[in-house]
């Protein structure tokens, strides 16, 4: 009986870790969906870029893990901002579905370009955080602990920034009313570009943090991009706290499902839940009625 409890506890820890990574990715996706009104299908690829760049900096430039993460997430944020400025912005002026298709095209380009450069062999990121900690019968390695701490800090940081800084206020103002924001002197185009870059930044951190726990390879973003949508549908489109709760719920469900039901079928739970929620509770589990995009 004790063993069973310990196994569940262990999977809960793993689930929360995975869930925080989903939460970071989805938090970024929700910023993009909520503020720009664009469903980005490239979010998984920015997650992948975070992981692959981190690996590349460590492998080819000999940088440390933390330095590599910092360098890669800044580069990914910059790539994201460029993509918004030069590709997504002109499309968004046309129509929503064309924009959606545009992000889809960006994801195809990035994934295959990276595969051309690095090949599609799964690579392992070697983390310096290797110590194992015992908490009673449970074991947690340092990398997972780092993810938990970094995830919580980042969510709090971004939440604080959106609520209290000038930039955050202009972001929220733009999401509420684009025209009015423009009237009071907010540079809407710049806000959009920065928001998109920020969304990509969060996805890249998630990819770089998850790298040591699973492998990194150019097509790793394919499923996770859709998972991002699962999370924001669970939590409610445009709801930032919802993205965090939704991410952790999905992570925990998947970990428990993989351990106690079947690891092959675990993805079915998330996709199935998303379809059901879209049909019966489209505002999400935590969203207010009428909220959304």
């Amino acid at each position: 009986m004790m063993d069973y409890g310990a196994a569940i506890g262990q999977q809960l820890i793993n689930g929360v870790v995975l869930g925080l990574c989903y939460a970071l990715l989805a938090f970024g996706l929700n910023l993009i969906v909520g503020i720009l009104g664009i469903m980005s299908f490239a979010q998984g690829e920015f997650y992948m870029l975070g992981g692959v760049f981190t690996f590349a900096f460590m492998q080819y430039l000999g940088l440390g893990y933390v330095t590599s993460i910092l360098a890669s997430i800044l580069i990914v944020a910059f790539i994201g901002a460029l993509a918004e400025r030069f590709l997504i912005k002109p499309l968004a002026e046309k129509d929503m579905e064309i924009t959606l298709l545009g992000t889809f095209a960006i994801s195809i380009i990035l994934m295959n370009l990276l595969e051309y450069i690095f090949g599609n062999t799964p690579q392992k990121i070697f983390t310096p955080f290797k110590t194992l900690y015992n908490i009673g019968p449970l074991v947690i390695n340092q990398q997972r602990l780092v993810i938990i701490i970094a995830g919580i800090l980042l969510v709090l940081l971004f939440n604080f920034m959106l609520k209290n800084t000038k930039f955050g206020i202009s972001v929220r103002a733009t999401s509420q009313n684009k025209v009015a924001a423009n009237l009071v002197g907010i540079n809407v185009a710049k806000t959009y570009t920065l928001t998109f870059g920020m969304g990509c930044f969060l996805a890249a951190i998630a990819g770089a943090l998850m790298g040591p726990l699973s492998a990194v390879y150019p097509s790793m973003g394919q499923n996770i991009g859709l998972k991002g949508f699962v999370v924001i549908v669970l939590g409610g489109m445009g709801s930032l706290p919802g993205a965090v709760y939704g991410g952790i719920i999905l992570g925990v469900i998947e970990s428990l499902g993989a351990a106690f039901i079947s690891s092959e079928w675990k993805d079915l739970i998330g996709y199935g839940a998303m379809i059901l929620i879209l049909l019966f509770k489209p505002q999400g589990l935590f969203g207010r009625k009428g909220a959304g995009v």
Binding site: E97, L100, L226, L268, G272
Partner: peptide, 21 residues
Amino acid sequence: LRLRGGYFAITTLAFAQIMKL
């Protein structure tokens, strides 16, 4: 098809992933 626009798109994508699974 009960859903519109982007929601329709992600639902069809999710169904395709389920079929692949």
